[in-house]
């Protein structure tokens, strides 16, 4: 299988783009014409050949450019990757999970040779070859969490379990929907999610925590979450809000199709074998309205969902100021 990796940017001139194949496999998150919070969890991986659910860690045409964008963000702000001292073992667990999965699922791109604790990793798309001793951090250029997540699309939170709660004690967060790892690291599940409106009162977090605490070894699950982002920007961090905030107000009826993106998070949950921590990868997919509307059923459904959404959620998801323009654009694709 030949693979193509886009040369594209997620800031500045924003040359990010989706091929027809990437649009076809975009994980459209709505299964009905209305939206409300739900836990919507399914086993992972597992899905049709070529879908974003097929493999444990999907590698797509944006891989190389996304990793370059992460490197830029980390160079400006190294605190986007943090690990409290007791989380290093969980970092090794995650490194193993990702290397084993990618070498199995994409043998043309990744190779992992293991001889006891002597490991040999080859990442062809990024041109990396590394020999190291598993569990010996001195043999890698970064800590295990940072090393592997500089080579894997999506944000990563590592959750430590104690006192029947989950604590956000490590993470690599450079493509977040406006939350700060540096501020939230060390928080428990309820503190970390406290700014999300309405959900706690609806019992969503109690249910989600109960589910996550029950995840066992060898089981993994996924859910989809979504928000809206102006321009294909991965780094919508609160740290840089004063830099990207003005772009949110740049939407016009003329440019909304190209500049307004549906941002979908493929969230997966994995129990890690040595540390018993939970890995919580948050993979971000971006697709502009114009590309989404090449699929008439998506155009029709997205129009209804965004038109009728609870105003509090429109505000929380950050598109209330552009809602009217977005809905009018989408209405043009709907045959009533």
């Amino acid at each position: 299988m030949t693979r193509h990796f886009n040369t594209e940017t997620f800031r500045g001139d924003y040359t990010y783009h989706n091929s027809p194949e990437a649009i076809r496999r975009f994980p459209f998150p709505f299964d009905q014409d209305t939206y409300t919070y739900s836990v919507n969890i399914a086993p992972h991986p597992g899905g049709p050949t070529g879908s974003t659910f097929e493999f444990a860690f999907d590698v797509d045409e944006h891989y190389v450019s996304e990793m370059q964008d992460r490197a830029i963000t980390l160079a400006e702000d190294p605190n986007r990757c943090q690990s409290l001292p007791h989380m290093e073992l969980a970092g090794w667990d995650l490194l193993e999970l990702i290397m084993v999965s990618k070498a199995r699922d994409y043998p043309d791109l990744f190779t992992l040779n293991r001889d006891g604790d002597q490991w040999h990793w080859i990442n062809r798309p990024l041109g990396i070859e590394q020999r190291f001793t598993f569990l010996d951090p001195a043999t890698l250029p970064y800590g295990p969490l940072e090393y592997i997540t500089r080579q894997t699309q999506g944000d990563f939170a590592l959750l430590h379990e104690r006192d029947r709660n989950l604590w956000l004690d490590a993470g690599m967060i450079t493509s977040q929907a406006d939350w700060s790892l540096d501020f939230d690291v060390g928080m428990n599940f309820f503190e970390w999610h406290a700014p999300v409106p309405k959900a706690r009162q609806m019992g969503v977090f109690d249910k989600a925590l109960k589910f996550l605490l029950a995840v066992e070894q060898q089981q993994a699950y996924r859910r989809l979450n979504w928000t809206m982002t102006v321009n294909p920007r991965l780094d919508t961090s609160p740290e840089n809000y004063h830099k990207w905030g003005p772009e949110k107000r740049s939407i016009t009826p003329q440019n909304v199709g190209q500049k307004q993106f549906l941002r979908v998070e493929l969230q997966t949950f994995w129990r890690l074998p040595r540390s018993n921590a939970l890995a919580f990868p948050i993979r971000c997919y971006l697709c502009c309205l114009e590309d989404l509307c090449t699929n008439p059923e998506w155009a029709r459904r997205l129009h209804l969902v965004l038109r009728d959404i609870d105003p509090v959620l429109a505000d929380y998801k950050g598109f209330a100021v552009n809602q009217k323009t977005i809905v009018e654009y989408l209405a043009g694709f709907s045959c009533v």
Binding site: D184, G186, Y241, G245, P246
Partner: peptide, 27 residues
Amino acid sequence: GLTLFVRDHFSRRIGAFQGVCVDAETP
């Protein structure tokens, strides 16, 4: 020197509330 709004979001590790630029979208 940025003008920040006062959130109720609190970090016990830092011992502080979070302040976020209030005019980020509309300088």
